[in-house]
Amino acid sequence: MLKVTDLHTHHGYLHVLNGINFELSEGELLAIVGSNGAGKSTLLGTLAGVYRPSSGSIEYKGKDITKQNVQKMVSSGICLVPERRQIFSSLSVKDNLMLGAYHRYRRDHKKVHDEYEEVLELFPRLKTMLNRPGGLLSGGEQQMLAIGRGLMANPKVLMLDEPSLGLAPLIVKDIMQILRKLCDERGATIILVEQNVKAALKVADRGCVLAHGQIVISGTSQELLNDPKVQEAYFGKMEAAKV
């Protein structure tokens, strides 16, 4: 469904992505893990059209979309739920969700409203606070709102940048399970970028480890969880024994 070939992205003089290659099939949950500064967010930003890649190609359903800007990416069905949630803090929960459907609101007025109900089914907590300004929600609720807002765009590929950031472990677990559910029950295709390696790999089908702008290890989640290098780098020796 999505094919990334030899993708390079620069931030000024900084060569952040250094030849990324991967493929994503429909209905798959891919976890991309790696340490700070590995290029995870830049990778998602490039796929979302926020950053222009300096070379390489992104193919989506057989079509080259490398040069598309954000607006076109969203309309093609590639949507990014950004790091730190970035919700519209002064707007109500309902408005936040509706704005997620901005690119198709005028065309599909009715469908948007139906899907709004569906998204609320997925996040029943949000239902109780529809008129509250997004900024007053707790971190976990904001993350649910951000994911809900992303879903309102009706994406074919949903990308999430560190949804676990700053959240309590129990809420992280909830959110990861919701992502799994989206794949299993609705056939969503998800790219999940995480520093919380264990939580991400537990729900993902496949995983990639990103370091210095390159994918250094990739495989099924189980393979990655059992990989001694991954264990040592991300779980520490003590933790590794437990996994």
């Binding site: 926020v50 954000v70 969203v74 950004p82 970035q86 519209f88 002064s90 704005l99 765009a153």
Partner: peptide, 16 residues
């Protein structure tokens, strides 16, 4: 308003 509150997120929603 969304552009005002959070221009980055607004762009991600396809708002120009």
């Amino acid at each position: 308003t969304a552009c005002v509150v959070n221009p980055f997120a607004a762009r991600l929603m396809g708002i120009n």
